[in-house]
Design a protein around this nucleic acid. Structure first.
Lengths: 200, 200
DNA sequence: TTGACAAGTGACCTTTCGTTCACTACAATT
DNA sequence: AATTGTAGTGAACGAAAGGTCACTTGTCAA
C-alpha cells in the first residue's frame, strides 16, 4: 500500500488542478483528500511544482500512447453510417472518461502559464483530432465514400465543430445530452454534404 | 486624476487575470502596476472579489452592447467574396483587439470556477458567433448567394472552426499569421461547398 | 532478532496573501 | 478661513500558503 500513494497523489492532483487550477490548489487539501497529512506528500514529490511536472509528463505520455501512435488509429469506416457511429463512439468516450475530461480542463486552465501545457492543449483541441480525421478522410476518399477534396481541410472542418461541443460539455455538463445530439446532427449534415452519392 | 483610477484598476485587473488567472493575481502586484500601494486599491474596491465581479459586470455589459444587440450585426454580404472579406475583417479585429483577447483569456481561465464567466464563455466561444452567422446565412440564402439549407447548422459549421483558430491565436500568438491564412482558406472552402454557383 | 529503510506524523518555519487602519495631502464646499 | 470628503500612504495583522525536520511506525532482508 506504499508505492501506489505516489500514483494516488498524481490522480488527486489531476482532480484538484482540473477544478481549481494550479494556483488554486493547496497541498494541505490535496493531502487531506488522500487522508494524508501535507508533509506526507513531500515523501513522494519534492514540491508542488514537481507534482505538476510529473502530471504533465504523465499526460504527455498518455497522449502519445493513446492518440499519437498510428496503431491506435480507428479503422477507416466502411460506410457513411459507419463513419457517423464511429464518431459518436469516440465522442462519447472522450466526454465521459473522467480522466480525459480532467486532462482537458487542466490544459485549458494552465495553457497560458506553462509551455508544455500549451503545446499539449493545441494537440488535444486542434491538431490531434485534425490529423486523425485527415487519415480517415483520406481512406474514405480512396474507398469512394466521400468526394475527393483536400482531406486536411475536411478534417479541420469536421474536427473543430466537434471539439467545440466537447468543450461545451466540459464547461456545462448539464448540456451533454443536447451536445451529443448536436454532434450527431452535425455528423449527418457533414456526410450529406461531402458523402459520395450512394443512393438506393 | 481621481475618478479614472477605478477604471485603471479594472483594466490592470483584466490584464493580470488574463495572464495569471484570478488566484494567481495578487493585489500588491496589481497595485504596483498602477504605481499605487496595495491599500490604495481598497479605496476603490472593497475586496479582490469585488474587482472580479465589477470586471465581469463590465465584460457582460460590453458583450451585450457590442455583440448581443441587433443593430451591431454586420450587413448581409452582397457576394461570396464580400462574405469572405467580411469574415477576415471580423477575425482580424477579434484577434488583434487586446481588450477582447484578454477577455477571452479570462473567461477561459475562470469558466469552471465562476458561473457568470461560464455563461459568458459559452456566448463568446459558441452561441454568440453561431447566432450571428445564422442571421447572415439566412440573409445570404434569401439573396441566393448560398444554397438553401438549415442556416443554423451552416452557422455552427462555419463559426466553430473559426473559433478554434481564434483560440489558437490566443494560446500561441506566434502562429497568428498561419491561423489567419487558415481562416481565409477555410472560408473560401466553405463558400465553394455551400455557395450557389455564380460561374462566369 | 536486529537493522535499515520507506512511509507517514505533527510541530514549526518563512513567506505571502488579502485586508485594516490611523494618518497625510489636497481639492472642493461652506 | 474653516471644513469636509476623497485619494493615497505605510505599517501592521491574522490567515493561509509551501516547505522542513525530528520523530514514529511498520515491513522486510540479513
Amino acid at each position: 500500500m506504499a508505492k501506489d500513494t505516489k500514483e494516488r497523489i498524481l490522480m488527486a492532483a489531476l482532480d484538484m488542478f482540473s477544478k481549481k487550477g494550479y494556483e488554486g490548489t493547496n497541498i494541505r487539501e490535496l493531502a487531506a483528500s488522500l487522508e494524508l497529512v501535507k508533509s506526507g506528500i513531500y515523501k513522494h514529490y519534492e514540491s508542488k511544482e514537481a507534482i505538476w511536472n510529473a502530471l504533465l509528463d504523465r499526460m504527455i505520455a498518455y497522449y502519445g500512447e493513446h492518440f499519437g501512435s498510428a496503431e491506435h488509429l480507428p479503422p477507416v469506416p466502411d460506410s457513411l453510417e459507419d463513419f457517423v457511429s464511429m464518431t459518436m463512439r469516440m465522442v462519447n468516450i472522450t466526454i465521459h472518461d473522467e480522466q480525459i475530461v480532467k486532462t482537458r480542463k487542466v490544459l485549458t486552465l494552465e495553457q497560458y502559464r506553462d509551455e508544455r501545457a500549451r503545446d499539449l492543449a493545441t494537440k488535444h483541441f486542434l491538431t490531434g483530432l485534425t490529423e486523425m480525421f485527415t487519415r480517415i478522410f483520406s481512406g474514405m476518399m480512396e474507398k469512394g465514400l466521400i468526394r475527393r477534396d483536400d482531406p486536411e481541410m475536411l478534417a479541420f472542418a469536421y474536427a473543430t465543430p466537434i471539439s467545440a461541443l466537447i468543450h461545451l460539455c466540459d464547461r456545462e455538463p448539464e448540456k451533454t445530452a443536447d451536445a451529443i445530439a448536436q454532434v450527431e446532427a452535425f455528423s449527418r449534415h457533414f456526410v450529406k454534404v461531402y458523402g459520395e452519392a450512394e443512393k438506393d
